[in-house]
Amino acid sequence: ISFDIVFANQPPIFYSGQSVSGTVIVNLRDAMKMRGIRARIHGRAYSHVEVQQTREYDDGQGGTRTESYTEYYREYETYLDHQVTIFGKDRHGQNPVLPAGQHAFNFSFVLPPHLKMPSSVELGHCNIRYMIVGTIDKPWKFDHIAKRAFTLLESIDCNDPSLSQRPFPLQNEKFLCCLCCQSGPLKVTANIDRCGYCPGEGILLNAECENLTNRAMRGIRAKLVRLVKWKARGYNDHRSSDYFEIKSPGEIAEGQSFSWSNQLIQIPAVTPTITSCGLISIKYEFQIAVIVPGGINLNLVFPITIGTIPLRPSGMAGMSI
């Protein structure tokens, strides 16, 4: 027997409100008696958190010892779970016989248009998965099961005013101290063109550094940082990842200013922002830093949203500091 699922859409990428349709293909060498063939759509989030614990135990000599161990906590959150019979019976009646040969059974599920479902994602300790599960329900025997995952993208429209608008410019300054001698301030100002982007689009950056200190700076650095948080059974964990890092050329001499103008920085292929899941959160920051040699960098942070519907060309606008 061969048992497979083929999606009508290739690649199988969907938004809420669209139909997930395809065909369950069964190829039998001999006729098979069964209750029926089911198609199920299933979507859920999963997370697990590892917690280091300690405990004491009797060492057998009248004393105690302490050992470390790991406890694992897991949790699920379900978004979709619906099953239909595409061949055979639901409950009552005679068990049908499917003849030998190849058979194709169509299925179609409409993703709920008003249900907030987070985008698919695969991470080390957590994931959000959507799939079609095909089952040949056999009486008194093990069932045959086929699974095919599809990608769901939450509708995050970068044309929405909250994402297409330009954020306020950011600025920061600090004084560098060396023993009892204090130099002039180090200042940085930066602006980006909007608050939301899709992979493949570009962040238009303008940044300016005024170096009134008595030492040279090593330039301005820009990077995209992903912040992931997940939880399970009341325990939390988090990770951060840098997706790219670029640096302005040369140093910024003492007493000098430097403008890093109209830098178009392309967003790589990254997971969309996720805020609608009860277990997993994914957010992004566009971080700007003046690199201070032998000291703490002077930083600016722009929270940005990674969307799934790109900005239309008519919505683009120029910008300047």
Rank of each mutant, 00 (worst) to 15 (best):
I1S: 09
F7C: 03
N9W: 01
Q10N: 12
F14G: 09
F14W: 09
Q18G: 10
S19I: 14
S21H: 10
S21A: 15
T23E: 15
T23A: 13
V24I: 15
M32C: 02
G36K: 10
R38C: 05
R38A: 07
Y46R: 14
S47C: 14
E50G: 01
V51K: 14
V51Q: 10
Q52G: 07
G62T: 09
R65I: 02
T66N: 12
E67C: 06
S68W: 05
Y69H: 05
E77L: 00
E77W: 01
I86K: 13
G88L: 05
G88C: 00
L98S: 09
P99W: 00
P99E: 10
Q102G: 07
N106A: 11
N106C: 01
F109D: 08
P118S: 06
S119A: 02
G134F: 03
I136W: 06
K138V: 09
P139R: 03
W140V: 07
K147A: 03
A149I: 02
A149P: 06
E154G: 07
S162N: 03
L163E: 07
L163T: 07
L163G: 08
L170D: 06
L170V: 09
Q171R: 13
L176H: 02
C177W: 07
C180N: 14
C180R: 11
P185E: 01
T189K: 15
A190S: 06
R194F: 06
C195Y: 04
C198A: 04
C198N: 08
G202C: 01
L205I: 01
L205C: 05
R221D: 07
W230I: 01
W230P: 00
K231G: 02
A232H: 04
G234N: 11
G234L: 08
N236P: 00
S240I: 05
S241Y: 11
E245I: 01
S248P: 08
I252N: 09
W260A: 10
S261R: 14
L264D: 04
Q266L: 06
I267L: 09
I274T: 14
T275E: 14
C277P: 09
L279I: 04
K283D: 09
Y284C: 04
V290I: 11
G295F: 00
G295N: 12
G307K: 04
G307R: 04
G307T: 04
T308Q: 11
R312K: 15
G315Y: 10
M316S: 12
I321T: 07
